[in-house]
Nucleic acid binder design. Structure first.
Length: 581
RNA sequence: CGGGGCGUAGCGCAGCCUGGUAAGCGCACCUGCCUUGGGAGCAGGGGGUCGGAGGUUCAAAUCCUCUCGCCCCGACCA
């Protein structure tokens, strides 16, 4: 392809809306163009990249027997009402009516449609297992799109769904998907970190997020440098060292006046004891039911863990009106004296220590509160956010580290959430004619996010450094100068490698500086320079974008060198964190 | 949805406080000459309802009101 024909319109200056490297360079390189908040056109150059990513995904999913199909974005609301997601999801799902006043939604994933297909076609154990996938537009009215293509409202997602006769078969199949994911990201030049993920209200039979560690990631995960334990912070558990005032014969509970002292920070100043000596009580409304969550003062409540424990779809902090109705007072909340409200206590709250807790009346706290003696609870479980430096619960040795990352993909054992009779009702007959629920898994990868993630990982101050596997072109020929012999040499080289590789010939009437800067910005992995200076000695130059390595070669040496380089630069599939199959 | 910032040519910006002489600059784009190893030079040129609506005024990019859009932080995130 000739540069002059390639629809490349690089920008010298940084558009002011862009702050993260992938956003800046994808805009400057004319890979993408904004249309609305979180909505982008993928321009020809970007399209070449996403096409390669899609091809890699297809190869790896076909390799494990996946079958590609296409499902519609336009879905009748009826399907989504049947699965209940129509009611469980709020604003993120776009809803509207057609001209005949029928309700529709724009699909944000395709569990409903694919389950409906499964219900109709998968009737026998002989039809299972099967994995169906598509690479299709997803629409999500995100509250806040951000960081260019890292979080958008319309994008291509590879979504795959597998169907199994039972959980054992799903468990047996799961590593194949897991390993395909590891390979897909590796082939795109990314070292993905598979972490244990929150599996939501399903309860955890298994879910992984594949993270790219990155300072611009929106998600956090913990990693144990000792045993290698890795998990989403929404799921991760750390050890909670004993705290509170451990005593053999605890003194009786006692009320203390604490006018205006509401926060844990205020309390530590007032009582002069550490944060861990207090109980923090948080009032939440879980699917309409008021619940008190009690954690130690030095921890934060994890709303996700609490919601999962309660199997609640919607969890929010209790509004003032709800508290007032129960004669509860924000800042002085406490499990003490509460009988008719479900109380969930965190495992960090020791029963052999006393704490300072609220008194459930304004401007009063209780000290010497002994859990079990002075209040009781319905459940005791881990409901706190893990902290940087907490001891790893898996090995008990090292301290957990919190890292930021971009979620590249998610694999999820769904079980029977969508196949149950209350949902999409998908069943089959086994070899004895008995009816069973189909067991399901679902697996997603965001295509444009993957492109942006590659740029987050592979760039320097001059621009992108695409891995050759996903680069828009493998080789750029920069012809510096307009002298006929330069043009002839460049054209000759172009003609001899254009059939074999994806080559961009910079045929523009531009100064050397412009051509070299653009080649760097665009991130083409191999640059071949043809110039007067080199040509005098019958030479050309190769420069490798990622390493900066430069080689001066004769034109005859160029061709075998390119053959070797193109192979050499392919991302390695060695030493990946495979799951045993 | 809360907090903050910004809307003037494709991109980056000045002008606004103090209304008129304020439609400007750099890059990009077009024409010609010249130049060719890191965003050259000279000359000429095209392009803007100053986000939108209403108001104040003899007069509004500039002052007032409303509104729309975009970005960042947070909440949220099947």
């Amino acid at each position: 392809m000739r540069y002059s024909q390639a629809f490349i319109h690089t920008l010298f200056e940084v558009p002011k809306e862009a702050e993260t490297p992938s956003h800046i360079f994808l805009l400057r390189g004319s890979y993408i163009n904004p249309v609305a908040a979180g909505v982008y056109s993928v321009l020809p150059l970007g399209h070449r990249v996403t096409s390669k990513i899609r091809a890699i995904i297809r190869e790896e999913l076909n390799r494990i027997g996946g079958l590609e199909l296409t499902m519609p974005v336009l879905n009748p609301a009826e399907l989504w009402k049947r699965s209940k997601r129509y009611f469980d999801i709020s604003e993120e799902l776009i809803r509207f009516k057609d001209r005949r006043d029928r309700e529709f939604v724009l699909a944000m994933t395709h569990e409903e449609v694919v389950s409906d297909i499964a219900r109709q076609f998968l009737r026998s154990y002989r039809d299972l297992p099967v994995m169906l996938y598509q690479i299709q537009t997803k629409i999500r009215d995100e509250a806040r799109p951000r960081a260019g293509m890292l979080r958008v409202r319309e994008f291509f997602m590879k979504d795959a769904y597998s169907f199994h006769r039972d959980f054992e078969d799903l468990d047996a199949y799961y590593p194949r998907i897991f390993n395909a994911y590891v390979r897909i990201f590796a082939r795109c030049g990314l070292a993905s970190v598979p972490i244990e993920a929150d599996s939501g209200i399903m309860g955890g039979t298994g879910s992984h997020e594949f993270m790219l560690e990155s300072p611009h990631g929106e998600d956090q995960f913990v990693i144990c440098p000792g045993c290698g334990y890795k998990a989403n912070t929404e799921k991760a558990v750390g050890l909670k060292p004993g705290a509170g005032a451990a005593v053999d014969s605890p003194p009786a509970m006692e009320k203390v006046g604490t006018p205006g002292v509401k926060t844990i920070a205020d309390l530590t100043r007032f009582f002069g004891v550490p944060e861990s000596s207090f109980l923090k009580t948080v009032a939440c409304v879980a699917d309409g039911e008021l619940v008190l969550a009690v954690v130690r003062g030095d921890f934060n409540l994890s709303a996700t863990k609490l919601a999962n424990h309660l199997k609640a779809v919607h969890l929010e902090f209790a509004p003032e009106e709800v508290l007032a109705k129960r004669r509860l007072h924000a800042g002085f909340l406490s499990p003490v004296g509460i009988k008719d409200i479900r109380t969930v206590v965190d495992t960090g709250v020791s029963e052999s220590a006393t704490f300072v807790a609220g008194a459930n009346e304004p401007d009063m706290h209780c000290k010497n509160v002994l859990p079990g003696r002075d209040f009781t609870w319905a459940d005791k479980t881990d409901i706190t956010e893990v902290r940087q430096g907490d001891q790893c619960a898996a090995c008990g040795k090292e301290k957990l580290e919190i890292r930021r990352g971009i979620e590249l993909g998610h694999t999820f054992k769904l079980g029977t959430k969508y196949t149950s009779s209350e949902s999409m009702d998908v069943s089959y007959l086994d070899n004895s004619g008995e009816q069973h629920r189909v067991v399901m898994g679902c697996y997603g990868i965001g295509v444009e996010r993957l492109m942006a993630s590659v740029v987050e990982r592979w760039h320097d101050e001059s621009g992108i450094q695409f891995p050759i596997s996903v680069a828009p072109y493998e080789i750029v020929i920069s012809a510096l100068g307009k002298k006929p012999e330069i043009t002839e040499a460049a054209e000759r080289i172009y003609a001899s490698i254009d059939k074999k590789y994806e080559v961009l010939l910079d045929d523009r009437d531009e100064s050397p500086g412009v051509k070299l800067k653009d080649a760097d910005l665009l991130g083409i992995p191999i640059r071949v320079v043809v110039s007067q200076k080199l040509l005098k000695n019958g030479e050309v130059e190769i420069k490798i974008r990622q390493t900066g390595e430069v080689r001066i070669l004769s034109e005859a040496e160029l061709y075998p060198a390119l053959d070797a380089l193109v192979k050499e630069l392919q991302p390695s599939l060695e030493g990946l964190p495979y799951m045993p199959e």
